[in-house]
Computed example of a mutant assay.
Amino acid sequence: MADVMARSGVITSCGRRFTVCSHRGGGDGKPFVPGSLRFSSGSDFLGSSLAEKMSSAKSPPLKSSLQPVAAPSQQTQRTLGFVKAMKWWEKGIQPNMKEIESAEDLVESLTGAGDKLVIVDFFSPGCAGCRALHPKICQFAETNPDVLFLQINYEKHKSMCYSLNVHVLPFFRFYRGAQGRLCSFSCTNATIKKFKDAMAKHGTERCSLGPAKGLEESELLALGANKDLAFTYEGGSADKPETITEPSKELTPPAPKPSIAVTAWR
């Protein structure tokens, strides 16, 4: 058996042939021990050892087809943040609608409106009636571009609303020029006729004799006395009578009389 294997080759399952080189067993009955295996590279299939190919071959560096994603620009981030942070009272805003930030902002907006009709809208984010009425207010603002709409968030300005005697929502006040406050009322979608009637009555253009009045004197005093507000008001100096002082006249002393000499006759 040893002689046969020594003189023959073996074909492996992958088609390669190897030759067994061994020490032939003697007559002492020792078993056959193969000495070495020599592979032949006569076959074209896997012409060399797979391990040798894997160790010798240098694989090219992998190139990723993924391209780096550019970071969004600041304008895009601001736009996305604005869309995510938009509240219901910020939707549908028209150019003639403005949210009041402070008591001073309210006073300046009213006095700076001139002869325009100004509508102050008091609302609250948690007020269902305010939310339902908001789209219609935006429609009124769109169809009346000459009217100024001022929005006051009750939750942000509770102390200011308390000084202005606003205790029900939604609530509206109409102002115009030197006349000051024209009317004030509360209405919802069910009573929207109040708003339409007030717009028809006070929406016509007119010219005021004098500067815009804005808030009432009592309201200004209440805002100035409110310690929670950074607003000061010293009082209506315009109502005080002006004191007219005449220019002083220089008094000219009288001219001295000429002295008369008296001669005594003896």
Results as ranks from 00 to 15, higher is better:
A2C: 06
A2K: 00
D3Y: 09
V4R: 06
V4A: 06
A6K: 03
R7I: 04
R7P: 00
G9H: 02
G9P: 00
G15T: 12
G15P: 05
R17I: 09
R17F: 05
R17A: 08
V20L: 02
C21P: 02
S22C: 02
H23D: 09
G25P: 06
G25T: 04
P31S: 08
V33I: 15
G35A: 09
L37V: 07
F39S: 01
S40V: 04
S41W: 12
F45I: 15
S48P: 00
S48A: 01
S49I: 05
A51G: 11
A51N: 11
K53Q: 11
S55C: 07
S55F: 01
S56A: 12
S56I: 05
S56L: 09
K58I: 10
P61V: 08
P61E: 09
L62M: 12
L62V: 15
S64V: 10
S65N: 11
L66E: 15
Q67R: 14
Q67H: 12
V69T: 13
V69A: 06
A70W: 00
P72L: 11
S73A: 10
Q74A: 15
T79V: 11
G81R: 14
W88T: 15
W89G: 01
I93D: 03
I93K: 08
M97N: 01
E101V: 11
E104S: 13
E108L: 07
D115P: 02
V118S: 03
V120Y: 04
D121E: 14
F122I: 12
F123R: 00
S124A: 15
G126A: 04
C127S: 02
A128H: 13
H134D: 02
H134S: 05
P135I: 07
F140Q: 07
T143A: 06
L148D: 01
L150I: 07
N153R: 06
K156M: 08
H157R: 02
K158H: 06
S159L: 03
P170E: 03
Q179C: 01
Q179K: 10
L182Y: 00
C183T: 14
F185I: 04
C187F: 03
N189A: 14
K193N: 06
A198V: 14
A198H: 15
A198N: 15
A200H: 09
K201R: 10
H202Y: 15
C207M: 14
C207L: 13
C207W: 13
S208L: 02
S208T: 11
L209K: 15
A212Y: 05
L220R: 05
L220D: 02
F231E: 01
T232F: 10
G236I: 06
K240P: 00
K240C: 01
T243M: 12
I244K: 14
T245E: 14
T245K: 04
E246R: 08
E250C: 07
E250N: 03
E250D: 10
A255T: 12
P258F: 05
I260A: 03
W265R: 09
